[in-house]
């Protein structure tokens, strides 16, 4: 009884009966999902299985057909993004290609939330921007460059620095390691696990990267045919679903997951 109560309190994201559809095409068919405080949840699924749509629904960028979504015990489903102010301060979102504002330098991008929500001096904001850049492994001279002058991987890391600007409790990552070289990707894995440890960060990560999945996640949610299955690497390997089986037991899956055993 006490354990159940405690678990309920520690749920950061609670999704119940979520339905998303584009026209006739049902993407999510009554999905239930819990994300617990302090865990890294990996979301996988085939192309077009609605991984990004799930992320966008949770942060209020996509209006679901039905179902409820609670983040920090506040409803987000069907609420306009502008009305989620209180929550937006507590989460950070990294979009697929970084989604940096193209007319601003990287430093200015990172300072957007600081400028909006705190009253820091410009000099302190410059320092904080440099700290965040260092955290995501970018050199300080990137600060004054424009997004168009960066490579895809650098844009992604700069986007992460912006997502971390307010030191959020909950981090949404959309394909964070796609487009990074393997060394940068594993550095990113270390960074996420390190931040999780020190800040009690909860991470919701959409990814295809089996190495990242193995290295960082506590639990995995698989989207197959509009339904969601959660488990760990160890339990999902034995799942009877053909897609899940192919995903974890294919050549790449075995190579990534077997490496540590």
């Amino acid at each position: 009884m006490r354990v159940a109560e405690r678990q309920r309190r520690d749920v950061v994201v609670r999704v119940r009966g979520l339905v998303n559809a584009f026209g006739e095409n049902v993407i999510h068919d009554h999905i239930d999902l819990d994300v617990f405080k302090g865990e890294i949840l990996g979301v996988v699924g085939g192309s077009g299985s609605g991984k990004s749509v799930l992320l966008r629904s949770i942060v209020g960028l996509n209006k679901p057909v039905s179902g409820s979504i609670h983040v920090f015990d506040e409803e987000t489903a069907g609420i306009e993004a502008e009305d989620l102010r209180g929550l937006q301060l507590r989460w950070g979102v990294l979009f697929q290609d970084g989604a940096l504002f193209s007319s601003q330098t990287v430093a200015e991008n990172i300072q957007v939330p600081l400028r909006r929500w705190t009253n820091m001096d410009q000099s302190l904001m410059d320092e904080i921007a440099a700290v965040k850049l260092a955290l995501v492994g970018l050199s300080p001279d990137v600060a004054r460059r424009y997004p168009a002058e960066l490579s895809g991987g650098m844009r992604k890391r700069a986007g992460l620095a912006r997502a971390l600007a307010l030191d959020p409790e909950l981090l949404f990552l959309d394909e964070p390691t796609a487009g990074l070289d393997p060394i940068a990707a594993s550095m990113f894995d270390d960074l996420v696990t390190g931040l999780k440890k020190s800040l009690g960060l909860t991470v919701f990560m959409v990814t295809h990267d089996l190495d990242t999945l193995k290295a960082t996640t506590d639990r995995i949610a698989v989207l197959v045919g509009g339904r969601l299955k959660t488990g760990t690497v160890a339990t999902l390997v034995h799942d009877p679903d053909p897609w899940i089986h192919a995903y974890f037991s294919g050549v790449r899956g075995r190579a990534a997951l077997g490496a540590g055993q």
Binding site: E127, A129, A134, L191, L195, S198
Partner: peptide, 16 residues
Amino acid sequence: LLSALAREGPQAPGEL
């Protein structure tokens, strides 16, 4: 967190 920040060096970025 300390090791992450300290590793990257706390040197101020100077003027941007």
